[in-house]
Write a protein that binds this DNA or RNA. Sequence first.
RNA 1: GCCGGAGUGGCGGAAUGGUAGACGCACGGGACUUAAAAUCCCUUGGCCCCAAGGCCGUGAGGGUUCGACUCCCUCCUCCGGCACCA
Length: 880
Amino acid sequence: MTIRGPRRRNVGRGGTMGSQEYDFGSIEGKWQKRWEEMGLFAAREDDPRPKCYVLSMYPYPSGVLHMGHVINYTIGDVVVRYKLLRGFKVLSPMGWDSFGLPAENAAIRTGVHPHEFTEGNIARMTQQMRRAGWGYDWSRELATSHPDYYRWTQWFFLRFLEKGLAFKKTAPVNWCPSCQTVLANEQVKDGGCERCGTQVEQRDMDQWFFRMSTYAQRLLDNHARLEGRWPEAVLKLQKEWIGRSEGARVEFRVAETGDPVPIFTTRPDTLWGVTFMSLAPEHPLVEKLVRGTEHEERVMAAVREMRAAGTSEKDLADREKVGVFTGFHVVNPVNGEKVPLWVANFALMTYGTGAVMAVPAHDQRDFEFARKYGIPIKVVIQPEEGSLDPETMTGAYVDPGVMAASGPFDGRRNTEAMPDVISWLEEHGHGRREINYKLRDWLISRQRYWGAPIPVVYCDGCGVVPVPEEDLPVLLPTDVQFREGGGNPLATSESFVHTSCPSCGGPARRETDTMDTFVDSSWYFLRYCDPHNEAAPFGEASLRHWMPVDQYIGGIEHATMHLIYARFFTMVLHDLGLLDFDEPFDRLFCQGMVCKTAYYCPEHKYLKEEEVVDGHREGDIIVDGRCAHCGRPVQSEMTKISKSKFNIVDPDAMMDRFGADTVRLYMLSDAPPDRMQIWSENGINGAWRIINRLWSLALDSLERVAAPGEPVPDDLDVLNREIRRMTHQAIGRVTGAIEGGFQFNTAIARCNELLNALRSGFEKVHPAVLRETLEVILRVLSPIVPHMAEELWERLGHGESVFTAGWPEADPEAAREELVEIPVQVNGKLRSRLHVSPDESREELERLALADERVQKFIAGKEIARVVVVPGRLVNIAVR
RNA sequence: GCCGGAGUGGCGGAAUGGUAGACGCACGGGACUUAAAAUCCCUUGGCCCCAAGGCCGUGAGGGUUCGACUCCCUCCUCCGGCACCA
């Protein structure tokens, strides 16, 4: 199929309206250069205007801009320019999340050093960003892989280490055998590596952590301050991720040995119904108990099997629950009952204590396990009506009820007795109230080269020794080998590994782990405030000046990783006395995914458009197409653009064809930006038309537009009064649309209306009204289509940038309606319309409505029960 | 399973409890053109009707109200997230 609407560079065919095409090629470049020269986006602390820090999430420098970047950075740029027009000095920085796996994988594949690879990509993407017209203060550009940045990442690590917030421990970790590195839980998707998809294994390794779990409650509490400012969904995701649950810690003991077995439960009210206990396969007690006993072989074999499955099982939740009896028992402290101790694959060592009390009567998972292994079931919560029989139960009873067989609590409602049960446990020394969180400590070790080296050395005499601050940065060495499956390349550098102990001067070994790249991104927004500081990560005064980020913009996929890490990091820096705030991002906005139709053949999977044959187009979609390879009918779906689905859109190609302004306008004109964005050929053509309609109307206006400053006369005709009214109403509505949640689509719609009104009455529009309206359109549209707005603003005779012109202010007098249309309803149904002054009295409206000919037809012969009059809005006559 | 969000023309989407469908796309008709593209103008929720006009319509069903896309209850569908968390 042929691509419709190919762009010809064909300007000035002259003649009638609409014939002049917007020549983005020369105009966009001109203004990008001009903004650079005038320092429009250079943020200065000595600038007296109030500050506004607008930040878009920095990208990984993959070398290619994709549509996700385009929507993200376009929104950011619109906010930046809008704030400029509103009189703020805006900090709008950009930088690079430039450490990470792709560069290292490329090094293994092609032999190009990650540094070179990364710098080349940064150069390419910078060009693409400039071309898109996004305004940044490039003097503040940073890259996390540069030593002058990662030296401070290392410096923060040392501060954490001093305070005991960075520590090392052996932990079962997610190991990606392909990447040869450890992954955070967040980086494991469906049991596979987030990056390469390889099945993840569990291994015990010595790893560095940040003590994030102790900040769980604070991360949760501070949500109160973010409510209404962050998307609901992000707060919810974080809440879920932090996973607070209240309950009790209860001390059980092994009957045979007396070993304590503490458990955590959210249902202390069911303690009397415990019929067995489960330990996680990794629980240290398992091996301790069975070693040297008749049970050892059988139990340890089962444990090995359970551990082998690890997290590599595709769907953990659907995995069959299996267990093995240890041969030992535990004593239930509340009633002295002796119940069997099992090892079960559903018990997690990483949550609670790694031991779970089992109440099959009131927990579905325990129920299934008990039925499977013939373990007794004991009912201790009875429903209000009827009584449960363990023999006939088909599932656990988890609803509220009355406690039974529960000693001192018999007959009490379980929901009400809960706090008393906990008090009782405390009084009798059996346990205490406890709160547990799913949020764990942050594993930051990566067995990789392309990251910030963790600045410690290992000395046989002194142990773990931090690198002294003055020796930072610990530079990445260049004498390393990048090999497929070769483990950590950093460990292959002799010059790096062998060093001397900063403490005793003896021979020592450097840590070869590097830090998770999420550490880099946990403070980059701070560095932007003072990017060239060589004495500190940032100057206190600069931070006080710019922070917090007023508006942060990025993808919702960072809700639980980056956004929690960055909040945690900020809190720690606050507690270290480095910051006087503890939440970094005042407002957050998450843009929607960019989607496009993809085609799918049951046999050949996703197809390119040209592989779909015999179909016809309905709008943008090929319908009833067949697979070019096998002839099977092809399905179409609207889905996130991705290479694997052959539905990608190349921003560069789009800007070649339509220019940056058209792409920007299209991204924002169809749907609110937090929703899914549908990319379509027709849609971008529509945006191109809007651009050209405005362009040619403005050019046609130049001949007859009033001189700048020429006042609008008082004695305008109806048409011109109407246009002025629309103009001044539009200012208010556009402002509201932007302030009320970035509803750029409706803001653009208002401008279209104005444009249409000017076009249809063009010959009769007064020159002064023409100028006024055009200038309003240009100013309110300038954040969205900045290049064209600037060009036309200049051609209208302004010497200064439109971005220094200020946001237009609505004149309430001009915006006032002279005549309003008042709907008249009878029993809620529209029957007629009155045309009256907007402040026509209640009585007169009622009189006019009742007298209306069309209304009469519907009320004749009926009893009027009530007449509702809302002055200026409507009349509703209720009849019987 | 649990928790969110959303269901409005052929499509993307507009509507402080007050004229449902702004704006745009697509479709159709017309103008310009030798012709096409581009551009411009008109029409366009469905149904009945020569017309005037009327009836029906915001996932389904109830409720509150003079009046409900909007608020409340029940249900259905779709999307997203979480999912052995004791």
